[in-house]
Write a protein that binds this DNA or RNA. Structure first.
Length: 850
RNA sequence: GCCCGAGUGGUGGAAUAGGUAGACACAAAGGACUUAAAAUCCUUUGGCAGUUAUGCCGUGCCGGUUCAAGUCCGGCCCCGGGCACCA
């Protein structure tokens, strides 16, 4: 028999599907396991990053199936998004057509991988049956005050023609197209994610199954600061200035006040004064700078307003400046400057020659006249009236209490997190179900009128929002029945992915977003697998949605994903030619470019990317090696969280291994089909040796899969196969053959999560019925794995000098005796005094001599 | 600047709780089978010295703790990632 993977893989993919082997249904008597991989955007083709993601998730899901769990393992399509609209413009193909064609192609690619998905639950978010419920949720959120519209400065990407959320701006550039993002004042829809800032932060301690890295990134993004709001009176005016400070303990050192250029008081204070002309110029100059330039410009600049405010504790008049480094959208947009203890304020004070007063000093060490940088450490208060001598940590609350009693301050917390802007001025997204009526204002569409469908005959020119078309916009007001205009913004595509894992629980439910009971049974997701690029986007939004749905009574849990595995990227080396930049490997001949003949530099190993010409095509590889060999390589090359470096010869090696397994089982097909029963317990001699290897392999593979060390699990199977290749020539007694038969049966099962087609085929060849994919995972007996004789290393002064084969239960005295008889050990302790002997049972003896 | 993660043979990577560093694989070299090739099988493969026995060195660098350190502690270097005028 030949390992005909093409025929065999197609055969089992068909059988799994026909027999609905992986379809899930609620069973209260079984422990559930919800395994989920991040659903793909239907870009057209599966790439190796997808392949690895799904291979990892599938190995975990298949293992859980075999461990007796009721497994939910669904897949779908994150189908809205801008590329579909760009394709419509370029290829004159409707976004829906383009998207559904891509889904069809990618679905067949996924089928070729042989994944254990419940395909009956497949969803596409661009399907009205899906986004209808999103529209309903949007209205419910609006009713709950969690969705609102406001005029604000937003991130605008000219090339995408739409607004972006803060999370979608990378260093001032669009996360999708890389163009510069500008600020634009627009009426926009927001979700009030900031209502959940504290809970999003606090609940992270209930996520021990998440990588610390992702939690840290979310923590930074939320950016909680504990401090106080302190109010300063303005000299000779009625207005007051409230600042936010994390260092109220330094208030006695606040020697000037800073306002953001956009702060309303900035203009008010200079109005109709001699400072007005220059001040307005200053404000204009700063606020006209792009967000990017403003954040990168570290030079401190300010403008004196001519006004003073009163430090509530020192009662001093301190000057009010407008400063370029004060952010308008953090805290209150105003800052009390403490130059002695803040680096930025120190720089500012030096430039504008403002007083610097030390108020914190560890044991009186800090001397004002010698200060050449801000002191930001801790210490006791000085120059602070009755607080002098108090450690600054204690002074924080004491000072806030005093301010509170004066009515000039209170404890306060600031977050960096802003509300989520969800309006997008694009066609291919979920329409926001609201209308504008001159009489009634903003009115939600009636629930019975949902879904608001996307008009099919929109025109895609690339300019403007395609939804700005008369027949879509013109409507009647749901409240008064008068003429009204429909909202033309659609939702950010991250809204769809914020709740799709819940829709999978009851994908055809037609009375709401999802069936509460199904979601209560299946959720939350036990294991989520995906890329780290969503650390603060999708993974934060989904957590927010779960909490919102919980508060609306849909769910009883707080978090969507109990455990998260962020898989590493698939990388490959790049080649660059001086004339053509990135080269395809086929254009590199003997280190030279085959087009221009110049020397080629072998670039870094980088994430596979079409533009860098270092991608490999999963379809071609599936043709050449089959899904099982490719899955093996994508799991074996590196642990799942780590990036993997593509290696053609590595894939070939895994292909050879698949063949090796096939030949091994094939050579013993007679034994497997014979009446001889597999041995159930070792009977001494060779049979015990075979049992030892079998059960050690089961033990190791089981433990490694449980801790997601899939690479070492596969290595353990390889070792097992190597051992069986030797054993197959040493089978003399019937017991040996029975043990070998049992070993082969275990081998087929151990391989099932990694090479499912091969396992099913060998299982059938071996004369068994039923799907091995749904059989019980092999169990092990630990005592079978233990050797009677163990190898004990003998160290003399920390260096291994001998290895002794001794009974595993040998006493320390026996081991010492044997060691002292060993000639090499003798040579190293001869003439010396034994000071110490340490024995680690059945492992090592350490002798110390002097 | 701050916060994470990492640094191990020619290469990808093992070493789960401080106990024989280099499992498993790739690559390379040699050999068997073959008219030949492919496939397969066997052997060698961290470095240095040595005919062997064996000895010394070796997990980014320097130091420490320990009978014993890839693993723990202190101080660096370099790489990857995230955050960054957040008061």
């Amino acid at each position: 028999m030949k390992y005909d993977f093409t025929q065999l893989e197609a055969k089992w993919q068909k059988r799994w599907e026909e027999n609905r082997v992986f379809e899930a249904s609620v069973d209260q008597n079984l422990p559930k396991y919800y395994c989920l991989e991040m659903f793909p955007y239907p870009s057209g083709n599966i790439h190796m990053g997808h392949f690895r993601n799904y291979a990892i998730g599938d190995a975990i899901a298949r293992h859980k199936f075999m461990r007796g769990f009721n497994v939910l393992h669904p897949i779908g399509w994150d189908a809205f998004g801008l590329p579909a609209e760009n394709a419509a413009k370029d290829n004159k193909k409707h976004p829906a057509e383009w998207t559904y064609e891509n889904i069809k192609n990618m679905r067949s690619q996924l089928h070729r991988m042989g994944l254990s998905y419940d395909w009956s639950r497949e969803i596409a978010t661009c399907d009205p049956d899906y986004y209808r419920w999103e529209q309903e949720l949007f209205i419910k959120m609006w009713e709950a005050g969690l969705a609102y519209k406001k005029l604000s400065k937003v991130n605008w990407c000219e090339s995408c023609g739409t607004v972006l959320a803060n999370e979608q701006v990378d260093d001032g550039f669009c996360w999708r197209c890389g163009n510069l993002v500008v600020q634009k004042e627009l009426e926009q829809w927001f979700f009030k994610i900031t209502d959940y800032s504290e809970e999003l932060l606090d609940n992270m301690q209930n996520l021990p199954g998440w990588p610390e890295k992702v939690l840290t990134m979310q923590r930074n993004w939320i950016g909680k600061s504990v401090g106080a709001e302190i109010t300063f009176d303005i000299w000779n005016r009625d207005e007051k200035i409230t600042v936010f400070s994390t260092r109220p303990d330094t208030i006695y050192g606040a020697t000037f006040m800073l306002l953001a250029p956009e702060h309303p008081l900035s203009l008010q204070l200079i109005a109709a004064t001699e400072y007005e002309h220059d001040g307005v110029e200053f404000i204009k100059e700063i606020s006209s700078m792009s967000r990017e330039n403003r954040l990168t410009d570290k030079e401190k600049r300010g403008f004196f307003t001519g006004s003073f405010c009163i430090n509530p504790l020192t009662c001093e008049e301190i000057p009010i400046y407008i400063a370029n480094y004060v952010l308008t959208d953090y805290g209150t947009g105003a800052v009390m400057a403490v130059p002695a203890h803040d680096e930025r304020d120190f720089d500012f004070a030096k430039i504008y020659n403002l007083p610097i007063r030390v108020v914190i000093s560890p044991a009186g060490e800090i001397v004002e006249s010698e200060l050449n940088a801000a002191y930001t450490g801790s210490g006791a208060l000085v120059n602070s009236d009755s607080f002098d001598g108090l450690p600054n940590e204690d002074a924080q609350s004491a000072i806030v209490e005093l301010l509170e009693s004066m009515g000039a301050g209170k404890k306060s917390i600031s977050y960096r997190l802003r509300d989520w802007g969800v309006s997008r001025q694009r066609y291919w997204g979920t329409p926001i179900p609201f209308v504008y009526c001159d009489k009634c204002g903003i009115v939600p569409v009636k629930l019975e009128d949902l879904p608001i469908l996307l008009p099919k005959n929109a025109v895609f020119t690339g300019a403007g929002n395609p939804l700005e078309m008369q027949e879509f916009v013109e409507t009647t007001c749901p409240k008064c029945g008068g003429a009204a205009r429909r909202e033309t913004d659609t939702m950010d595509t991250f809204v769809e992915s914020s709740w799709y894992y819940l829709r999978y629980c009851s994908p055809k439910y037609d009375k709401g977003l999802f069936d509460k009971e199904e979601a209560a049974y299946w959720g939350p997701v036990d294991q989520y697998v995906g890329g780290i690029e969503h650390a603060v986007l999708h993974l934060l939004y989904s957590r927010f949605f779960t909490k919102v749905l919980r508060d609306m009574g849909w769910l009883s849990y707080d978090e969507p994903f109990l455990n998260l595995l962020t898989q590493g990227m698939v990388c490959k080396e790049t080649h660059r030619s001086p004339n053509h930049n990135w080269l395809y490997p086929k254009d590199v001949k003997n280190g030279k470019c085959s087009i221009c003949g110049e020397r080629v530099t072998v670039g870094r190993v980088e994430k596979m990317s079409k533009s860098k010409h270092n991608v490999v095509d999963p379809d071609e590889l599936l043709d050449a090696y089959g899904a099982d060999a490719l899955r093996l390589f994508s799991l074996f090359a590196s642990p799942p969280e780590k990036e993997i470096e593509w290696s053609d010869s590595g894939v070939e090696g895994c292909f050879r291994f698949a063949n090796r397994v096939f030949r091994l089982v094939d050579a013993h097909i007679g034994l497997l089909n014979s009446d001889m029963p597999p041995l159930s317990a070792p009977k001494g001699g060779k049979s015990s040796e075979i049992f030892r290897h079998t059960h050690a392999a089961i033990m190791k593979v089981t433990a490694d899969i449980e801790r997601f060390q899939l690479n070492t699990a596969i290595a353990a199977i390889m070792e097992f196969v190597n051992a069986l290749y030797i054993f197959q020539n040493e089978l003399k007694e019937d017991d040996d053959k029975g043990a070998f038969k049992a070993a082969l049966i275990s081998l087929i099962k151990l391989l099932a999560p990694f090479t499912p087609h091969l396992s099913e085929e060998l299982w059938e060849q071996a004369g068994f019925t039923r799907f091995v994919s749904r059989l019980q995972w092999p169990t092990y007996v630990e005592s079978y794995t233990i050797l009677d004789n163990v190898c004990i290393a003998v160290q003399v002064n920390g260096k291994v000098r001998a290895e002794l084969s001794l009974a595993r239960d040998a006493s320390k005295d026996e081991v010492v005796k044997a060691a002292l008889q060993n000639s090499r050990v003798k040579a190293h302790i001869d003439g010396k005094v034994i000071v110490k002997q340490i024995y680690v049972p059945s492992k090592l003896l350490s002798i110390v001599v002097e």
